[in-house]
């Protein structure tokens, strides 16, 4: 019974993914169908079109196994190993630098803004 509920919930989430794909193709939206599905799901929950428990345990299960789902696609790197030879090593330097700058930018911006708004709240 519990398994059936999980399968139904995953099927329901899959439905939103398919819907996202359809919208993407129908209106040539330049967004991944899965992201459109995510936005639709968040909107539907916010509008209380159906209760959270309809999707909760299925979503928790899928997210717990997320790393498993992207293993097959990542294994595809076997066909591109030569990318990391020679000059390609520099790509790793670019990745490291850009990731650190991203972290610093988002961390500093959000911390500054949240401190400022909290100081504002205390004054008022």
């Amino acid at each position: 019974m519990k398994l059936l509920v999980l399968l139904l919930q995953i099927g329901f989430l899959y439905g939103f993914f398919i819907l996202g794909q359809l919208l993407r193709e129908l209106f040539s939206i330049p967004l991944p169908g899965s992201i459109l599905g995510l936005i639709l799901m968040f909107t539907a929950l916010s509008l209380k079109l159906f209760p959270l428990r309809w999707v909760d345990s299925g979503a928790t299960l899928l997210l717990a196994f997320l790393p498993l789902f992207f293993i097959p696609a990542t294994v595809g790197i076997v066909d591109y190993f030569d990318v990391f030879t020679g000059k390609g090593v520099l790509l790793i330097v670019v990745l490291i630098l850009s990731t650190i700058l991203t972290m610093a930018g988002s961390g500093l911006t959000s911390q500054y803004l949240s401190r400022r708004s909290e100081a504002g709240k205390e004054l008022s």
Binding site: F17, P32, G37, G58, L63, F69, F70, A73
Partner: peptide
């Protein structure tokens, strides 16, 4: 990937599932 693609197919709904923790 004859087998791998079946696992791959769960990526789409898993991304949709990200809406739940966000909600």
């Amino acid at each position: 990937m004859v087998g791998g693609e079946w696992i791959d197919r769960l990526l789409g709904p898993a991304v949709v599932a990200l809406a739940i923790p966000l909600y």
